[in-house]
Amino acid sequence: MNGTRGLSLLETIVALFILTTTVWSAGLLYVGLMRGAQTGEARRHALSTAETALQVWREKGKEPWPEDFGLEPIEGVYHDYVYRVEIGDPLRNPTFNASVPGSPEYLDVRVLSITLLYDEENRPKEIVLHGSLAK
């Protein structure tokens, strides 16, 4: 008879607990996956946009550089993202010789930094990319 009796109360509670925990874990896992995917997608999209913005600005670098180019950060909206462009100080030519006519004082390249702002689960996030701005 001992081997045929039903589950005791304790066994039932434990079984329910295990079942609940398992279902809860599965749900948590599913939600986590979904949130992770959404978060990753948002960041990936922002990353892609930042990379595109970087390329756009690299192309802009081939246009004439205004005298005040890069003195102040440039902010704008690109594909619904707010972004900030910072153009580093002119890279001084380490071989510059003022006594040699035509010797360039600066290299024809500057460090270009793109900071793109985006929301990740209603929290402000940013992506920063560094590239070159060459004439």
């Binding site: 925990t21 398992t22 809860w24 874990s25 599965a26 948590l28 896992l29 939600v31 986590g32 996956l33 949130r35 992770g36 995917a37 978060t39 990753g40």
Partner: peptide
Amino acid sequence: AFFAAITYQVRGTL
């Protein structure tokens, strides 16, 4: 499994 799910959520996707 529960903690693995949480860990995955926090780190795996990122």
